[in-house]
């Protein structure tokens, strides 16, 4: 009888233990596998967070301080495809896919920065 009870307990315990171990591994490795995301700021506030690991081609329309911008995402890269700003620096910057190259549209106070890839916290 005791043997049977122990076997039943093990049926319950082993899957629970496995689930706990799997959950622990996932949680501990979650940060290192953090997906590449682009954060879009307008006047210092985040208005859009774009997952760059999603390779789907798509456009986002962002309302900047002085007009609209169109952000185009394709194959893990991001660019400003249209902007009403006078200098068009943000459009001319082209596609960006790494954290060291933010896109800035000063006219519209739009700042696009990529997070999640760096092996360092800051550069000096």
């Amino acid at each position: 009888m005791d043997k049977k009870k122990l076997r039943n307990d093990l049926f319950l315990i082993i899957p629970l233990l496995l689930a706990a171990v799997v959950a622990l591994i996932i949680l501990l490795t979650r940060k290192t596998n953090q997906p590449l995301v682009a954060k879009v700021y307008v006047s210092d506030a985040i208005v859009e967070t774009i997952d760059l690991s999603d390779k789907t081609e798509r456009d986002y329309t962002i309302k900047g301080k002085n007009g609209e911008l169109v952000i185009h995402v394709h194959d893990g890269k991001i660019k400003v495809s249209k902007s009403n700003c006078p200098h068009q620096d943000c459009v001319n910057q082209g596609e960006v896919s790494d954290i060291n190259h933010p896109i800035i549209c000063a006219y519209n106070e739009v700042y696009i920065v990529i997070n999640g890839q760096a092996n360092h916290d800051a550069e000096i």
Binding site: A20, A23, L24, L27, L28, R30, K31, K39, Y41, D44, I104, A106, E109, Y111, V113
Partner: peptide, 16 residues
């Protein structure tokens, strides 16, 4: 332990 691990909260600001 698993539920506590890496549940850090981050607050960020980018001031241009």
């Amino acid at each position: 332990l698993a539920s506590c691990a890496k549940t850090e909260t981050v607050f960020e600001g980018n001031f241009q």
